[in-house]
Structures are given as structure tokens and as C-alpha cells.
Design a protein around this nucleic acid. Structure first.
Lengths: 96, 96
DNA sequence: CAATTACTTATGTTTGACGTAAGTAAACTT
DNA sequence: AAGTTTACTTACGTCAAACATAAGTAATTG
């Protein structure tokens, strides 16, 4: 069961921010006052970006919180679509 | 401590969708196959719009799931800002 | 008046984000 | 070379919140 290209926010954090900026997860954790395991698990796709995390990232990187929460939202929606339950498919659009 | 105008997605659902469309929460719950209390609590601001709920709403109303999750995101960010913890305020933007 | 509509509240379960802490290892300091 | 700091991961217990089930009350409709 392949995870067809759905990209977790932790991957973006690592590849688009930490690596090009020459930062380690350890340094980032210190800078935004969160435990290291929170970052470690995000980077490995085992934990989601929450409002709290998004705000901390935004302060440090100068992005908007919505950027991070948007990535998470896209990821979650994609994941959900890969296992959409039968009853969801039976929902009929409202008429009139 | 006033909740200065932060509008919960449940309020939008009620005022912008259910009421103008002449729908009850009961009917919507049946139509999208969720328990009534899930809707009841959303409408009263006691529960959040999740990915599952957003997808169900989108199928029924013809909106995008992101519309609903975006409303929830905006609401959550606003709520968080009203009680931003001291350590968040001390985060320094990355330099160089 | 019985069934359906309509809504709320109580209860118990499960999931997932959380922090603490401990473990390993590499890279610097002294 | 020993010790500190950097760096990362994993284990564990807690807590909040979304979840379904179910039961309760009213009002409306057949």
C-alpha cells in the first residue's frame, strides 16, 4: 500500500527550511521552546502540526501560521481520501 | 473576558447554510450519516470541524472541504492568540 | 394518540498531542 | 582522554477532545 506522494508537513520543514538554513531540529526546538521529541515526531510524520506549533514556526521562520496549518490540512485531506468510508460516498448533494 | 467576535464554524453552518436553506440539524445529520449530537455540539461551538465532517459537509453543500477546515483554522488561530503563552512571545525570528 | 421530527445531555471509549525522561552517539572543549 | 554540549530517538504516562451510543424531552405530523 503505497503512500502515493502525499507530502507531510514535517518533510517540508526538513527539506525546505532546516536543511537549506543549516539548522538542526535540536536548535529549532530550543529556539521555539518545545521539547525535542515534538519536532522529531513531526519530521518523521508521526505527529501533526497543531495551532501551537504553527504559531511557533511562524514566529521563527517569518511565515504565516496558516502556511503550516494549510500544509497539514492538505495532507490530512489527502490521507482521508485514500480511505474514504463507504457512507461518505453515498452522500447526496442538497437539491433545491 | 469577552470573546470579541470570533466566529465559530458552527455559527456559519447555522446562519449561512441551515437557516437560509430551510434545513434542520436533524435532517442534515441524516443526510450525511453522522449522529445528531455531533452536529448539535458543532452548532453550539463545543466541537470542531474535523476532516471527516468537512468532507461530509462539502459533499452535501457543494462547497470545498477546505472552506470548512479553513473556517475552523481561522477560529482556532484567533482563540489561541487571545491567550498566547509567554514563551511564544519570546520566540526570536531566525537571522541569517 | 402514536410515530416521526428535533434537539440536548450523559456516559464511556479511543485517539492523538503533550511533556518528562532516558537512552545512544557524535562533535566539540578543556 | 575525559567531560560537556549537540543531536536525535524511543518509552511512558497524562490529558483533551472527538467519537458513538443511548436516553431524555418536546413539538409536530399523520
Amino acid at each position: 500500500m503505497e503512500k502515493l506522494n502525499n507530502i507531510h508537513p514535517g518533510e517540508v520543514l526538513k527539506v525546505e527550511f532546516l536543511e537549506p538554513m543549516g539548522l538542526t531540529a535540536y536548535k529549532l526546538a530550543k529556539a521555539i521552546f518545545i521539547p525535542q521529541n515534538r519536532l522529531s515526531e513531526i519530521i518523521h510524520g508521526k505527529r501533526s502540526i497543531t495551532v501551537d506549533t504553527a504559531i511557533r514556526f511562524s514566529k521563527f521562520f517569518g511565515t504565516s501560521p496558516k502556511f503550516w496549518l494549510g500544509l497539514q490540512m492538505d495532507y490530512d485531506l489527502e490521507e482521508k481520501k485514500l480511505e474514504e468510508s463507504p457512507d461518505i460516498q453515498e452522500i447526496k448533494a442538497f437539491q433545491e
